[in-house]
Design a protein around this nucleic acid. Structure first.
Length: 225
DNA sequence: GAGTGATCATCT
DNA sequence: AGATGATCACTC
């Protein structure tokens, strides 16, 4: 077992730690870290992600930054079924709905977060107890030209609609790789956005998510090599 | 409320 | 069965 708590000093060290976890059931990792193991994720949706953050020494917190800012790496766990297909979309970051005039893809939060991602697959069906799910081989990924092009097209299209006051028209069907969906504590959570007439409206906070077809493809591209 | 970690619950 | 829209826990 690698040393928890210590922050990795280099990307290679981080990757080594992640590789040492491969094959381990989540319950074993949790026990080593003195963490409770829930029977299901219904009330602990972030349990797996937070367990891996703790194990790999990621900075906890709610700052809109990468998990390892000094390394330029974002950590993401991704649930896979037995066929290595993603069971869920991947949350990237919240979407700005106001003051977006000067934003560009190059400086966007989406591009920053996805510029380098350490993917930690977690294998297990939805009905499998979290503790029994297995940690898979990690993948350090940077979007290739085609992937970045796709992400950029989607981001620009979605952001244009938002800037035009059409956020309420955007559904999860927009975009090939990236999609916009609600991201909130519940349906009563509201925030300001631009309305159809250029005025302010109240709407649900939104987040950018990677579609499963995109993450499935990027995982396949690497693991089939 | 806004951000982090995400999966749940329901509809098609 | 897979995707969409809704929701859970926690921190600040």
């Amino acid at each position: 077992m690698n040393n928890p708590i210590l922050r990795p000093e280099s990307v290679s060290q981080l990757l080594e730690h992640a590789q040492e976890l491969a094959g381990l059931p989540l319950a074993a990792l949790a026990h080593n870290l003195n963490q409770p193991v829930p029977d299901n994720l219904r009330r602990d949706k972030g349990w797996i992600g937070q367990l891996l953050e703790l194990s790999l020494g990621a900075s906890a917190g709610s700052k809109p930054e990468q998990d390892f800012p000094e390394l330029g790496v974002e950590l993401k766990t991704i649930p896979l079924d037995a066929a290595a297909r993603p069971l869920e979309t991947t949350f990237v970051c919240v979407a700005p709905l106001l003051n977006i005039a000067g934003l560009s893809w190059e400086t966007s939060n989406v591009r920053n977060k996805l510029s380098r991602v350490l993917w930690i697959p977690v294998i297990g069906e939805r009905d499998m107890p979290p503790g029994e799910r297995l940690i898979g081989q990690p993948l350090l990924w940077t979007p290739n030209e085609e992937e970045e092009w796709l992400l950029r097209q989607d981001w620009e299209e979605i952001m244009e609609l938002i800037s035009l006051g059409r956020v309420q028209e955007i559904t999860a069907r927009h975009g090939q790789a990236l999609q916009l969906r609600p991201k909130a504590a519940n349906g009563r959570a509201l925030t300001d956005a631009i309305g159809p007439d250029g005025n302010y409206i109240q709407t649900r906070p939104r987040g950018f998510y990677l579609k499963t077809s995109f993450t499935a493809a990027l995982l396949a591209r690497h693991f089939m090599l």
